[in-house]
Design a protein around this nucleic acid. Structure first.
Lengths: 152, 152
DNA sequence: ATTGAAAGATGCCACTT
DNA sequence: AAGTGGCATCTTTCAAT
């Protein structure tokens, strides 16, 4: 789908505040509210907008502990890769998992309450998955920036 | 703020779809819509809910290239740390930046269109920041999982 | 926490550029 | 093709209980 300048502006506005009314959006875009409404509908239908979410303060929900965990597999056959990926997706503590280039195979972003919870996650969940060769944890000292907003 | 079982359920529902009406939410929580409304207001006011955002499909907005960049500073004085952090926050390509433990100081999650754009970001933006000692880039081959939804 | 009601937003329509 | 203005319906918001 081709996005014009108005679509891009609209997507930026919706990333910054998804609850703005079409009326408020229409004033910022110099369009009628129906035109804005139709554009949003189209962006949703085309899958450009995947959904809308509430962003929570991790400190206030007792999930302030973030760890990047590097994972190496024992082997890299299709069966091992597919197996690991389908298992890791189901772990609720793993918010993100990327297959990456370099010295290890995957980077996991793990989000739990504290070190104790992380230890528990590692011993009873992650390392009990099949095909894991080694792991290496990097602990977050401070979140300097964390946004979901992509500039267009 | 103390969150009860209903608050936690409500936050999970809002993380999964922030555009659900209070009526729909109230049916799932067995509450009146005004009660749901008051709870949401309180969670917003207390800062548990930081905001609402539209989630976009990175492939469809031509930002499918994700790189983890490890950064080491030349020194670790307060001045160097504060200077680097305030500079990196302003880079729109950097969606996330964490001060971490281990062999390097920061992990950056960089989101751009393609390798060419990343090369450009590195040479004209990141490496021109002061106090940077070294960088190491890890390229994403595939996004296996990426959610903002925290289980409560 | 609930009901009920006013104020406001959405979603759809016929029509215009 | 995409934009407008208005109207019916649904939601949000708030007062009273």
């Amino acid at each position: 789908m081709k996005l014009d300048t108005i679509d891009k502006k609209l997507l930026e506005l919706l990333q910054n505040d998804a609850k703005q009314t079409t009326k408020v959006l229409s004033l910022q875009l110099n369009l009628s509210k129906t035109a804005v409404y139709e554009r949003i509908r189209k962006l949703e239908k085309e899958g450009v907008i995947k959904g809308y979410t509430a962003l929570l303060d991790k400190k206030k929900i007792d999930k302030a502990f973030v760890v990047f965990c590097h994972v190496r597999l024992t082997q890299h056959t299709k069966e091992h890769v597919v197996g690991f990926e389908s298992d890791v997706i189901r772990l609720e503590e793993v918010l993100e998992c990327y297959h990456v280039s370099g010295d290890y195979d995957y980077i996991l972003k793990v989000n739990v309450a504290d070190m104790q919870a992380y230890r528990n996650f590692m011993t009873s969940k992650l390392t009990s998955l099949k095909h894991i060769g080694s792991t290496h944890s990097i602990f977050m000292i401070e979140e300097v920036k964390n946004t979901t907003v992509v500039e267009l």
